[in-house]
Amino acid sequence: DKATDPGVPEENWEFIQQFCDRVNADTEGPSLALRLLAHKIQSPQEVEALHALTVLETCVNNCGERFHHAMAKFRFLNELIKVLSPKYYGTWSSEQVKSRVTAVVFSWTVWFPQEVKIQDAYQMLKKQGIVKE
């Protein structure tokens, strides 16, 4: 909650670092963190969702292979897809949140070309016209 506090417009790097440390300290850390972050990224409060995306990207950079393995599952990718889809939360989330989610998934297709599920998820979004460019 402290790492994604919507009452604070600036990123709080100290709390973000503490979040990453806890992810790394626990065997179940990556899967638990991703469930929490998915929930926050789906928040209708734009600042909370944007903070959660920053935390997610920081974890991708700092939490290593176990985190990458968990985030490359459809279980988590589906939660990001829901933010973009008008059938799910697409009408609640702001354009800025949606464009950052799209950019994050696209960047993973580049940085993790071996993760087939990320490629599948992104191709599906393009095929359905949800990602246009």
Partner: peptide, 15 residues
Amino acid sequence: TVSFHDDSDEDLLNV
């Protein structure tokens, strides 16, 4: 502590 590693997954959501 014994930890159960769940390696299962869901299907890709159809939007």
